[in-house]
Design a protein around this nucleic acid. Structure first.
Length: 507
RNA sequence: GGGGCUGUAGCUCAGCCGGAUAGAGCGACGGUUUCCUAAACCGUAGGUCGUGGGUUCGAGUCCCGCCAGCCCCGCCA
C-alpha cells in the first residue's frame, strides 16, 4: 500500500523495464514484463464523404481505450485512422459532382459534409442504375489513381471537407489519431501482388488474380479466394489491407516496424480479416513472435433489438447522438440542482453535463464485452446508479469532497498505515488488484474488464464511505483512511483516464 | 449450402482459456439521512445457464447434434 501511494503508476510496471520489481515488492503478480514492442492500433476509420455514425463510435472508443492502455504500459503506439479515401466510390462521386456541382471540386468549402453525403447517395444510385455512368466513374477512378491533377485536386477537397468534420468529433471525445488512409498504400499495391506471385500464392481465376485460402471452403466445396486484382486490372480493399499489413510489419524506413497490429472493426469483417491475415502469413510478411489481431465488436442496436435508427429510419449521426447525451444530462442536472436548492454557474452546469454526458456514452460502450451486440439506451447509460459513468464519477467526487474539507494527505508519513474495519480491508484488496487488471486488458484487449474493476472499486469505496467515518476518525485511523481515499481517487482517475474518461471534482 | 458470433434472473449484462452454495446492475418489494455531496448505503424475492447427448472426480465454461437470433460468403469497403 505504502509503495503504491508513492508510485504515480500505481504498481503497473512499464513494459521493457525492470519496474516489475516494484510490482513484486507491493505484492502483485503481473508476471514477466513484456518488451516494449511497437504496437499499431487501427481504429475509427470512417469513410470520406460520409458521416460518422454509431458504428464508428464503437471502433473509436474501444480503439482509443486500448491504445491508451498499451501506451500506459510503455509501448510505442501508432494510432492509425485507416480512412476510406480511395476506390470506386470516389469515381462515382467525382463524376457526379462534375455534372451537378462542379464548384465543389475546385473551391474549398463550396459544399458541406451534409451536401456531400446527399451527393454520395445520388451518385451511388446512378452508379447502380446507369451503365454509362458506371463506365465514366471507373475511368475517373483510373485517372485519380494515376495522378491526374484535376481529379487529384477534387479528391483532396473532398477529403479536407470530411476531415474537418471528423476532427470536430475527435476533439470532442479527446481522441488522438493519425490519419493514414487507404490512398497511402496505393504505391505499394503492385508490389503486394508481385510478392504474392513470387511466393507462388497467386492464382488466375475467372479473370481475377486471387490467393486461395487453406482450410476455408466456400460454395460447392471450392476453396475461398481472396481477390487481390480484379478482372479490370484494378485493386480492391483486400489488396489495400494486405499492403497495410506488409508495410506495418516491415522494418523502418520502408515500414512501421510494428510487432503487434490490432484492428478494431465490427465483427462482420471477421472472415475478411481471417482471410487477409492468412495470406499475409503465408506470404511471410509477419515476423516471428509478432501478433496480428482482429478485435471485433458487435452491432449497436436500438432498444427494439434492431440496428439503431432514428425515428424516421435514417442512421443516427454520431454528432446528434453525442448532443443528445449531453442535453439529457444537462436537463437532469438542472432538475437535480433545483430540487436540492443548489445554485451553480452556467459554466459549471455546461462543464458537468458535457463531461458526464460524453463519459456516459463512452462508458456504456466500453463496459460491455465488445464481442456481443450492444443495446444503446440513453436512459440506462445516464442512470445515476448501477454500472454507469455517473456512478463512478460520483465516487471520485465524494473523495474530492473529503480532500476539500480534510486537507492534504501526508504522502511520506512516518506513521505506518493501520486498518481495522472490514470495509478498509476490502478496499485495500481491491486497490491492489489494479496492476493485474491492466495486464489482463493489455493481453486480452477487453476494456470491459477494466470497467468491471472500476465499478467494483467504486462499490467497495461507497460502502467504506458510507460505513466508516474518515474526517471524524481518531488521528491515526484518520491518516490511514485518508491514504485509502487518496489511492482510491488516484486509481479511479487513472483507470477512467485509460478509458478516455476525464473526472470531476464536483458534480 | 458453407462459415462466424450470440443464447445465463422480468430487463441489460458479467462470469478472466473446467473447480466449491452461478454474480452484478436495473426493475419489484422493504429499510437507512442532526454526520465527509442520499447521484449513496443495507436487506428481501427472482435463474433446471436455449436444448439433447458426450468427455471428466468435477461442465455456464471443453467436444458433437439440434433449435432460435444476428452477421459474412469472387471481383463494394
Amino acid at each position: 500500500m505504502a509503495s503504491r501511494l508513492a508510485d504515480p503508476r500505481l504498481g503497473v510496471p512499464r513494459a521493457g523495464t525492470s519496474e516489475a520489481l516494484a510490482g513484486a515488492a507491493s505484492g502483485s503478480e503481473v508476471g514477466p514484463v513484456a518488451p516494449a514492442d511497437p504496437v499499431i492500433v487501427d481504429f475509427s476509420s470512417p469513410n470520406i464523404a460520409k458521416e460518422m455514425h454509431v458504428g464508428h463510435l464503437r471502433s473509436t472508443i474501444i480503439g482509443d481505450a486500448l491504445a491508451r492502455v498499451l501506451e500506459f504500459r510503455g509501448h510505442p503506439v501508432l494510432r492509425l485512422n485507416h480512412v476510406g479515401d480511395w476506390g470506386t466510390q470516389f469515381g462515382m462521386l467525382i463524376t457526379h459532382l462534375k455534372q451537378v456541382a462542379p464548384q465543389a471540386l475546385t473551391t474549398a468549402d463550396a459544399v458541406d459534409l451534409g451536401d456531400l453525403v446527399a451527393f454520395y447517395r445520388q451518385a451511388k444510385a446512378r452508379f447502380d442504375a446507369d451503365e454509362a455512368f458506371q463506365t465514366t466513374a471507373r475511368e475517373e477512378v483510373v485517372r485519380l489513381q494515376s495522378g491526374d491533377p484535376v481529379s487529384r485536386r477534387a479528391w483532396q477537397l473532398l477529403c479536407e471537407q470530411s476531415r474537418r468534420e471528423f476532427q470536430a468529433i475527435y476533439d470532442r471525445l479527446d481522441i488522438r489519431l493519425n490519419e493514414r488512409g487507404e490512398s497511402f498504400y496505393n504505391p505499394y499495391l503492385e508490389a503486394v501482388v508481385a510478392d504474392l506471385d513470387a511466393s507462388g500464392l497467386l492464382v488466375q481465376d475467372d479473370g481475377a488474380q486471387c490467393v486461395f485460402l487453406e482450410g476455408v471452403s466456400g460454395k460447392e466445396g471450392k476453396p475461398l479466394p481472396v481477390i487481390v486484382r480484379k478482372t479490370d486490372g484494378g485493386f480492391n480493399y483486400a489488396t489495400t489491407d494486405l499492403a497495410a499489413i506488409r508495410y506495418r510489419f516491415a522494418d523502418s524506413p520502408a515500414g512501421d516496424g510494428a510487432r503487434r497490429v490490432i484492428y478494431v472493426t465490427d465483427a462482420g469483417q471477421a472472415s475478411h480479416f481471417a482471410g487477409v491475415f492468412q495470406v499475409a502469413r503465408r506470404a511471410g510478411w509477419i515476423p516471428a513472435g509478432s501478433r496480428l489481431e482482429h478485435v471485433p465488436f458487435g452491432l449497436v442496436q436500438g432498444e427494439d433489438g434492431k440496428k439503431l435508427k432514428t425515428r424516421s429510419g435514417d442512421t443516427v449521426r454520431l454528432k446528434d447522438l453525442l448532443d443528445e447525451a449531453v442535453e439529457r444530462c444537462e436537463a437532469d442536472l438542472r432538475r437535480r440542482l433545483a430540487e436540492e436548492g443548489r445554485a451553480e454557474s452556467e459554466e459549471f452546469i455546461r462543464h458537468v453535463a458535457t463531461t458526464v454526458g460524453l463519459a456516459a456514452v463512452k462508458y456504456a460502450d466500453l463496459s460491455q464485452n465488445r464481442t456481443t451486440n450492444y443495446q444503446f439506451s440513453f436512459d440506462r447509460m445516464l442512470a445515476l446508479q448501477g454500472n454507469t459513468a455517473p456512478y463512478l464519477l460520483y465516487a471520485v467526487v465524494r473523495i474530492a469532497g473529503i480532500a476539500r474539507k480534510g486537507g492534504d494527505v501526508v504522502t511520506d508519513s512516518d506513521q505506518p498505515l493501520q486498518f481495522s474495519e472490514p470495509q478498509e480491508w476490502a478496499l485495500v484488496r481491491q486497490l491492489l488488484d489494479f496492476d493485474a487488471v491492466i495486464a489482463a486488458v493489455e493481453d486480452e484487449l477487453l476494456p470491459n474488464r477494466l470497467c468491471a474493476y472500476l465499478f467494483e472499486l467504486s462499490q467497495v469505496f461507497n460502502r467504506f464511505y458510507d460505513q466508516v467515518p474518515v474526517l471524524k476518525a481518531p488521528p491515526q485511523a484518520r491518516e490511514s483512511r485518508l491514504a485509502l481515499c487518496r489511492l482510491s481517487a488516484d486509481t479511479l482517475k487513472l483507470g477512467l483516464g485509460l478509458l478516455g474518461i476525464p473526472t470531476l471534482e464536483r458534480m
